[in-house]
C-alpha cells in the first residue's frame, strides 16, 4: 500500500516533467525567470547578511554630509540626515523580505489549509469556508490590511511589527484558498484518493500525504506572487506612515515624509528606494510568472 505515494499518478493539471536536472531545464525554458531568480538570490543575500554588503550602519547620522550626491564614498548618495542610502536600501531589503516572506507564508499556508479542507470535506464545511472567503474577498487588499492595522495597532517583537505581518497576510488567505481549492478539487475525484479512503486512512494522512503534494505547484506560484504583493503592500503602508517607523530602514518609508521635497537637490533620495521596491516586486512577479508557465502545461509550446 505504501506505493500509493504521490509519485505514481500525477494531477491532470500540473505535471512536473521528469528531467534529470529541473533547474537547468527551468533556466533553458524560462530565461527571464532565471534572471529574476538571480535578482531574488542577491536580494536575499543582502537581506540576510547586510553587515557584509552595506558599507555603513543604516542608522548612522552624519550631519557633515547631508544630501551628498552619489560618489565612491556613498554609491547612492545620502539622505537629509547624511545617512548612506545604499546601506539603507540593503538593510531595507531585510525589512521587505522579512515582512514579504513572513506574511506571504502565513497567508498562503492558512489559505492552502482552508482550500484543501474545503475541497476534501466538501458539503457544509466547504460551504461555510467559501462564504467566509467571499466576505474576505469583498475587501480590496490594502483596505483589508488597513482595517487590520486600525484594529490591532502595533506589537513589536524583535524589531518586527507582528501585526503588520498579520495585516498583510489576511488579505492573502482567501485568494490562495480559492485557487488551492480548485486544484484540490480536481485531485479529489482521482481514483487513488478513493482508494486511500477505502483503505481507511485518516483524513489527515490523506490530506497531507496525497492531496497536499498535488497542490504544491499552484501553492508555490501563489506564494511567490504574493511575496511581491506583500512587499508592495508593506511599502505602501510605510509610505502612509502606518507601517514601519523611522529610523528603521524600509523602502516605502524612505519615500515618505520629506523625501520628495528635495527632488531637485537630491533626486537620488526619490529614485533609488523606488527602484529597489520596483525591482524586488518585479523579480518576484516575474519569477512567479515563469514558474506558472513552467509548471502549467497549458501554456507549453
Amino acid at each position: 500500500m505504501a506505493n500509493l505515494s504521490p509519485t505514481v499518478p500525477a494531477s491532470a493539471q500540473f505535471v512536473l516533467p521528469k528531467r534529470p536536472n529541473p533547474i537547468l531545464h527551468f533556466v533553458r525554458a524560462q530565461p527571464m525567470g532565471a534572471v529574476s531568480f538571480i535578482i531574488i538570490i542577491i536580494m536575499m543575500f543582502a537581506g540576510l547578511f547586510p553587515q557584509f554588503v552595506a558599507p555603513y550602519n543604516p542608522l548612522d547620522i552624519d550631519f557633515a554630509s547631508i544630501l551628498a550626491a552619489p560618489s565612491w564614498d556613498h554609491w547612492f548618495g545620502t539622505d537629509a540626515y547624511g545617512r548612506d542610502i545604499f546601506s539603507r536600501i540593503i538593510y531595507g531589503s531585510r525589512t521587505a523580505l522579512v515582512i514579504g516572506f513572513a506574511s506571504s507564508a502565513l497567508g498562503s499556508s492558512i489559505g492552502a489549509v482552508l482550500g484543501i479542507a474545503s475541497a476534501y470535506f466538501g458539503g457544509r464545511i466547504d460551504n461555510w469556508i467559501q462564504r467566509f472567503m467571499d466576505i474576505l474577498l469583498a475587501f480590496p487588499i490594502i483596505v483589508l490590511a488597513l482595517v487590520v492595522v486600525a484594529a490591532l495597532r502595533k506589537t513589536v517583537i524583535y524589531g518586527v511589527d507582528v501585526n503588520l505581518i498579520i495585516a498583510i497576510a489576511i488579505p492573502i488567505v482567501p485568494r490562495v484558498a480559492r485557487v488551492v481549492r480548485a486544484a484540490a478539487l480536481s485531485v479529489n475525484v482521482m481514483p487513488y484518493i478513493d482508494a486511500a479512503r477505502a483503505a481507511g486512512y485518516s483524513d489527515a494522512r490523506i490530506i497531507f500525504r496525497h492531496m497536499a503534494p498535488n497542490v504544491t505547484a499552484p501553492f508555490l506560484i501563489m506564494f511567490t506572487a504574493f511575496i511581491a504583493q506583500a512587499i508592495l503592500l508593506e511599502a505602501s503602508l510605510s509610505f502612509l506612515g502606518l507601517g514601519v517607523t523611522e529610523p528603521i530602514a524600509a523602502w516605502g518609508l524612505m519615500l515618505s515624509g520629506n523625501a520628495a521635497d528635495f527632488y531637485r537637490e537630491a533626486p537620488w533620495m526619490v529614485i533609488f528606494p523606488g527602484v529597489a521596491i520596483s525591482l524586488a516586486v518585479f523579480a518576484f512577479n516575474l519569477f512567479g510568472d515563469s514558474l506558472r508557465d513552467y509548471l502549467d502545461p497549458r501554456f507549453k509550446t
Binding site: I61, K154, T245, E246, P247, G257
Partner: peptide
C-alpha cells in the same frame, strides 16, 4: 520626525536601544 531620528541616534551612542513610536 527629525527630532525623533536624532534622539534615537544620540541614545544609541551610549548603548541605549530606543523604539521610535510615531
Amino acid at each position: 520626525t527629525p527630532a525623533g531620528v536624532f534622539l534615537v541616534d544620540q541614545w544609541r551612542q551610549i548603548g541605549v536601544e530606543v523604539e521610535h513610536k510615531q
